[in-house]
């Protein structure tokens, strides 16, 4: 792939991702509503919400939290760019971890007990899903010999055939990242939670919009990562990613929110065991 091509891909992805992310969030709300027997909002509702947030008057509870919101956005964007440039998956996930940390620090920098406890829980969430993502990258390394996205795209056979248990573990991480039940402990999709909006509590207006758009990038990035599990041909991978997305919505609707201790237990118990088991199986069979 030439440099021009990869630049075109990155710019295209950067431009398209908010659109795709917004539509996915719209689909999420519509489908959730239909599963609950409701009409649901129009598909474009996330964009209306975004527009409304941008148009709100400016109010911040602490300047540091604004800086951290920008940090979250820019770091997510960096991770996104690196991913679509076909770079090292480990670097992508580390930068994504930094982004998550920025969100937590933003919440820590305010004096609200809600935001602070939300930040505590956000860090716990990172503790739960980061090992999965990093170990998944390691598993991909074992399979392809490299950590880069390029190598996966160039590999001959779909990863899913060799790493099915890793895929399951990544689904757990996706659930945590999407803030869906039973893992919506730091900031729920809807505010009926003891911490209201957790880490987002002290954000409003355009900074909340910024976080929202970063969240869309993050969603697209994670789904793209899932699509990598079937990169030949890529459209199957995209379908699998969409399937994973709908599976999360389904699980969200059949489960209550559980406690953080359960989340850490489940993600480590299921996630890490599955990945390790997968790697052991691979080495035994190979």
């Amino acid at each position: 792939m030439t440099l021009t091509w990869s630049l075109i891909i990155v710019v295209g992805a950067l431009l398209l991702a908010p659109l795709v992310g917004g539509v996915l969030r719209g689909l999420d709300r519509k489908l959730t509503a239909r599963l609950q027997g409701r009409m649901g909002p129009p598909l474009a509702q996330p964009f209306y919400d975004f527009g409304k947030l941008v148009g709100k008057s400016h109010s911040v509870s602490s300047r540091a939290s604004v800086a951290w919101a920008w940090a979250y956005f820019l770091l997510t964007l960096t991770a996104f760019t690196l991913f679509f440039l076909g770079q090292d998956l480990l670097v992508v996930f580390f930068i994504l971890a930094f982004a998550g940390g920025a969100l937590a620090f933003g919440a820590f920098s305010t004096r609200s007990p809600y935001a602070r406890l939300g930040a505590n829980r956000e860090l716990l969430q990172m503790l739960a899903y980061e090992p999965i993502l990093l170990l998944a990258a390691v598993a991909i390394y074992f399979q392809t010999g490299k950590f880069t996205v390029h190598s996966v795209l160039e590999a001959g056979e779909p990863l899913l055939l060799y790493l099915p248990l890793v895929f399951v573990a990544v689904l757990v991480a996706l659930g945590i990242k999407m803030r869906k039940s039973p893992f919506d402990i730091a900031a729920s999709e809807h505010a009926h939670q003891e911490l209201v909006r957790g880490v987002y509590t002290e954000y409003s207006g355009r900074h909340l919009a910024l976080i929202e758009i970063a969240h869309w990038y993050e969603l697209v990035l994670l789904l793209a990562f899932i699509a990598l599990f079937w990169a030949q041909p890529l459209w199957v991978g995209v379908l699998i990613a969409l399937g994973a997305f709908f599976l999360e919505i389904w699980i969200d609707n059949i489960a209550a929110r559980l406690r953080w201790s359960w989340m850490v237990g489940a993600s480590w118990g299921v996630g890490i065991t599955f990945i390790v088991a997968n790697l052991v199986l691979l080495s035994v069979l190979a």
């Binding site: 599963l35 027997g37 389904w250």
Partner: peptide, 15 residues
């Protein structure tokens, strides 16, 4: 809850 969800999805919205 799954049976309820399937029923809801196919019986159309109540709102």
């Amino acid at each position: 809850m799954s049976t309820n969800l399937i029923k809801n999805f196919f019986s159309g919205p109540a709102t």
